[in-house]
Simulated assay, not measured.
Amino acid sequence: MAWFKREEKGIITTTQEKKEAPDGIWNKCPNCKKPLHYTEQVENKYVCHYCSYHIRIGSKEYFSILFDNNEFTELFPNLISADPLNFVDTKKYTERLEESKNKTGLKDAIRAAHGQIEGHDLVIACMDFTFIGGSMGSVVGEKIARSIDYCIEHRMPFLMISKSGGARMMEAAFSLMQMAKTSAKLALLAQAKLPYISLLTDPTTGGVTASYAMLGDINVSEPGALIGFAGPRVIKETIKKDLPKGFQTAEFVLEHGFLDFIVDRRKMKEQLAAFIKMMDN
């Protein structure tokens, strides 16, 4: 096709009439920068089919990948954060919460749901990084605690999908309390002899890593996920040494004994179902 066409009033380039693709249909892989079509991403479980990079996704996508036929019942959907400290930084905490709610369509940085995975009943609590960096506040801790209570009451295994920048500073001690609270609830789950699988995704850091994310009967991660407590820069400045290559990647953490398995997201449902079946026997 020619790059121009002739009209009565002269020549115009055909590029002037080109229509842009609607937002969201095409984007670039964050790793290899090659173009990815949205339909292909969904079919490939949001994994780049060129370089196998695992694109960050939220609870909506994880539920659709893991729950049979994407059928589930959401648990405790109406919990919302308060502002007990009347926190103000560059803006009020209440304003930050409203902005995040409007932007993401979520009520906080976590959703919990009950459904089935290959016929096995399961409760999944999944964090959303798009809501204030997946930060752990009082609602995150409360939903995890209530989900564990639900598992104990109904005799079901529990899957926690972590994706967080750490504790939510706007709630200060109320946020830090969730580390002890969720750890205590997981101890009750263990006493009830019910399985707990922890799935660490990119990134899992801070107080989340220091509490429920690392307490699974089985700790699993996706390839290449960032897993750690403090950031590499802070650690390097503290110990005054250069850090090993690949420090805080899932592969490094697995090599040093803090993970049990790394599982490709495209095989995650099958592998999780196998874990549940094994631990139920």
Rank of each mutant, 00 (worst) to 15 (best):
S147Y: 05
S147C: 09
D149P: 01
D149N: 14
Y150R: 07
Y150N: 09
Y150S: 11
Y150V: 08
Y150Q: 09
C151W: 08
H154A: 03
P157S: 07
F158Q: 05
L159N: 03
M160R: 02
I161C: 09
S162F: 08
K163L: 04
S164I: 03
G166D: 06
A167I: 12
A167V: 10
A167G: 02
R168P: 00
M169G: 05
M169C: 03
M170Y: 14
A172R: 13
S175L: 10
L176K: 05
L176V: 10
M177H: 13
Q178K: 10
M179D: 13
K181Y: 08
T182W: 04
S183N: 00
A184K: 11
A184V: 02
A184D: 13
K185F: 10
K185S: 15
K185W: 06
K185L: 11
L186F: 03
L186S: 01
L188F: 06
A190L: 06
A190K: 15
A190E: 14
Q191A: 06
Q191K: 15
Q191P: 00
L194F: 01
L194K: 07
P195E: 03
P195C: 02
P195V: 09
Y196V: 10
L200T: 08
D202E: 15
D202F: 04
P203L: 09
G206A: 08
G206Y: 01
G207R: 02
Y212R: 02
A213E: 11
L215G: 09
I218D: 03
S221K: 06
E222C: 11
E222V: 15
P223M: 10
G224R: 04
A225W: 05
F229H: 15
F229W: 06
A230R: 12
R233S: 13
V234H: 11
V234N: 10
I235C: 04
I235K: 12
K236N: 02
K236G: 03
E237C: 06
T238N: 09
I239Q: 08
K240A: 13
K240F: 08
K241H: 05
L243V: 12
P244K: 06
P244T: 11
P244G: 09
F247M: 04
A250Y: 01
A250G: 11
E251K: 02
E251H: 04
E251D: 01
L254T: 00
G257Y: 14
L259W: 07
F261E: 14
